[in-house]
Write a protein that binds this DNA or RNA. Structure first.
Lengths: 338, 338
DNA sequence: ACAGATTGATTAAACGTTTCATCAAGCTAG
DNA sequence: CTAGCTTGATGAAACGTTTAATCAATCTGT
């Protein structure tokens, strides 16, 4: 219970030098002789000293802490949508390599904002912001390095990283078309303007167009991108007559859908082909393993951190918009239509 | 880019009082008249002031930050094992209600320790520690409020929360026995002494014993508790002749197993019944939906935070060992043997 | 009307760093 | 021999709070 922290002062006394010197060897700043360095280092070891981040933070007005915000998510989404886990862990891994730590900021946007100021957060990564919203405005007001993930914001001054959603939506649909499907339903999250789901939806329409297949709005089913969402969409999809395939704009919905279909005795891909989007780790273990438009979630996380860091250090980053590639991963949830 | 933070000093000047007064209204400490209070509050609003956590942390030697450590996990486990994710989000939710924040501490234990000191962490929650290890010793050395989850540590002075693993293992196995199965394999994580898997394994043996079924060591398959682990165990399980059911000590392994079995054309529950443990959110959407021994993951997280907080505030908590109940959730991955 | 209690506010030290300005001492060059 | 430079180290202020000690002024009861 000895609660006295060992401080830089103790080290100084123990090494017989001033605290300034200790600080200098700690940070490699200033001039300090080799002898003194080893002297101080010995003292540090002996006392098992480690500098107080709190004090450093205060002095530097930095925290080496970043936060991930998912503004438009209700409580529980982070927990229910594996895509977010994968993304957040990717961000965490990226941050770690720069000695940054990630603060888990839950769903409530209201709270998040005060955090950022109070905790001196060095940066925030925002997933799925929507243009013109109050939340977005407040984030920008914070005047803190920010990177937006998975949203299409028109302000060119903003740092954004996203994947080729439209192209991916197109590819996924084309894959089904290539397998002989003509009547393809779309299972999508809310079609918010400038959101990823909309982009993938546009790709879907484009593929249809190019193949000369007429677009039928009643084949578009909106459901939350979650297991539950996908699962409960199964009912609506089941009653779509003539449909032989579904393109889902998220893996989690696709997997939920397959589960829901299973409940109804509809087998994938025998009765219905399914293609997802994201390439969640999970998808490989779905039954059947999910054919999907793969995005590099890890790369997305790393890229976000890189952009954030560039802003933090230079006040700007070389490129403001990073667009990553996607690619088809063919597994077994979509079959050729005879 | 105006980088000057507005500080308590600015508020004081703006309200025409001393900074001590501002601090007092901020914290509700000391004596301050109603008039002054509203005066100060107006100033706070006007300047959009929020106090610097960094400064507070320094003064208070507190950080309102806790960390979750998973000591024996290699990199990637957090990301691959949904159980951890659910637990961490539960902890986060619990922490939030006490204005605590959760630092995501990745897999490397070496790093974690320095974090705790440097960042003045107020507490740590350790998942799956092993007795007698270097890591455990170092954690205890930190002399910081700590709660252990999912480990059976003999030191009665430690705060631990766990579920009735042995009982659950017994119940899960009994469920299969009740369905007429006699030849039941066990798919388990590493049987580390005093680990949860071992406890569940003991329950398994107990159920066998009580039913007068001989224990056959070759029916016990060890595999990492992950999708991959379960999936690749499928091969080994498939060649176990005469086995009609598998009890898996984790849902994630069970789901991986079902996936692996599917690859081999072995249908669950037609050819093989499977029971899991944990009740992951995912399990409801597996095909078939997973019958499992359910633990209250959210409750576990909340309880851990509660115990941590009790230590932080009183230096001790009413009870040192919290053992939560588990219950069978019968879904469709295990069938009656005719 | 006065000692003492109460109320409301202030001053200043402390928390553990970093960093700028200063300084002593040993060199070099003219 | 001294002016000026270099090297290595130090003193002290600052970062933005909290809080104990102090103080002035008003309020009691007698």
């Amino acid at each position: 219970m000895s609660d006295m922290r060992v401080t830089i002062k103790d080290v100084a006394r123990c090494a017989g030098v001033s605290i300034a010197t200790v600080s200098n060897v700690l940070n490699g700043t200033g001039r300090v002789s080799a002898d003194t360095i080893s002297l101080v280092q010995r003292a540090i070891k002996a006392l098992d000293f480690s500098p107080s981040q709190a004090a450093r933070n205060l002095k530097a007005k930095k925290s080496r802490l970043i936060a991930v915000i998912v503004p438009f998510a209700g409580r529980g989404v982070l927990h229910e949508n594996p895509f977010y886990w994968e993304l957040v862990t990717a961000i965490e891994a990226g941050a770690r390599s720069y000695q940054l730590h990630v603060l888990l900021v839950g769903a409530e946007p209201e709270e998040s904002f005060s955090f950022v100021k109070e905790r001196h957060l060095d940066g925030v990564i925002v997933i799925g912001a929507s243009e013109g919203t109050e939340a977005l405005a407040r984030i920008l007001q914070l005047n803190v390095p920010t990177v937006f993930l998975d949203s299409y914001l028109s302000d060119a001054a903003l740092y954004q990283v996203l994947v080729d959603d439209e192209w991916g939506g197109c590819e996924g649909t084309k894959h089904l078309i290539g397998l002989g499907h003509r009547s393809i339903a779309l299972l999508t999250g809310e079609l918010r303007p400038r959101g990823v789901h909309e982009a993938r939806y546009i790709g879907y329409r484009k593929a249809l167009d190019e193949a000369g297949i007429g677009y039928r709005p009643n084949l578009v089913i909106e459901a939350p991108p979650s297991m539950e969402g996908g699962s409960s969409a199964a009912a609506r999809i089941a009653e779509l007559i003539g449909v032989t395939a579904v393109f889902a704009t998220s893996d989690v919905a696709a997997i939920g859908l397959m589960s829901g279909l299973g409940e109804r005795g509809i087998a994938v891909p025998r009765d219905l082909s399914v293609v997802g989007f994201d390439d969640l780790h999970l998808g490989r273990f779905a039954s059947p393993p999910l054919t999907t438009v793969a995005q590099d979630i890890g790369g997305k996380g790393r890229e976000a951190v890189r952009l954030l860091l560039a802003q933090m250090e230079n006040g700007r980053a070389p490129s403001r918009l990073e667009r990553l590639k996607v690619e088809m991963k063919v597994r077994r949830s979509a079959r050729r239509l005879e």
